[in-house]
Amino acid sequence: PEDLERKVRELQKNGVSPEQIEKILRRDGVDEREVQELVKKVS
């Protein structure tokens, strides 16, 4: 979803590592495939 992507970009802009971003997304209940997609987009 659009807002998730925005969140991921925000986190990355704040210097959060892709690994941390993955953890955060998983903790928020984002589905694994979605997590991978989002992280791939920003890394």
Rank of each mutant, 00 (worst) to 15 (best):
P1W: 15
P1I: 13
P1M: 14
E2G: 13
E2P: 10
E2V: 12
D3K: 07
D3A: 12
D3H: 09
L4D: 01
L4R: 05
L4C: 04
L4F: 05
E5D: 05
E5G: 05
E5P: 04
R6Y: 10
R6W: 11
R6C: 09
R6A: 12
K7H: 05
K7V: 08
K7D: 01
K7I: 09
K7T: 05
V8E: 00
V8K: 01
V8H: 01
V8D: 00
R9A: 06
R9D: 02
R9H: 05
R9Y: 08
R9I: 06
R9F: 07
E10I: 12
E10F: 14
E10M: 13
E10D: 09
E10V: 10
E10Y: 13
L11H: 01
L11W: 13
L11I: 00
L11G: 00
L11R: 00
L11A: 01
Q12K: 12
Q12G: 04
Q12M: 15
Q12C: 14
K13E: 08
K13T: 05
K13N: 08
N14P: 00
N14C: 12
N14V: 07
N14W: 11
N14Q: 13
G15L: 02
G15Q: 02
G15E: 01
G15M: 03
V16P: 00
V16W: 13
S17K: 06
S17W: 03
S17F: 03
P18R: 14
P18M: 15
P18G: 05
P18L: 15
P18F: 14
P18D: 08
E19S: 11
E19D: 09
E19K: 09
E19V: 06
E19P: 03
E19Y: 06
Q20K: 05
Q20C: 13
Q20S: 06
Q20E: 14
I21N: 00
I21R: 01
E22D: 02
E22M: 15
E22G: 07
K23F: 11
K23R: 12
I24P: 00
I24L: 10
I24W: 05
I24T: 03
I24R: 03
I24D: 01
I24Y: 03
R26N: 03
R26S: 06
R26Y: 05
R26E: 03
R26H: 04
R27I: 06
R27S: 10
R27F: 06
D28Y: 15
D28W: 15
D28N: 11
D28L: 15
D28H: 14
G29R: 02
G29L: 03
G29I: 02
G29Y: 02
V30I: 11
V30S: 02
D31N: 09
D31W: 04
D31G: 09
E32N: 04
E32W: 10
E32S: 06
R33Q: 09
R33N: 10
R33K: 13
R33P: 04
E34F: 14
E34Q: 13
E34A: 13
V35A: 11
V35W: 07
V35S: 02
Q36D: 05
Q36S: 06
Q36E: 09
E37T: 05
E37S: 07
E37A: 11
L38V: 10
L38N: 01
L38D: 01
L38A: 07
V39W: 04
V39C: 11
V39I: 15
V39A: 03
V39Y: 04
V39G: 02
K40W: 12
K41S: 09
K41I: 11
K41H: 08
V42F: 11
V42D: 03
V42R: 03
V42W: 09
V42G: 05
V42Y: 11
S43V: 14
S43M: 15
S43G: 08
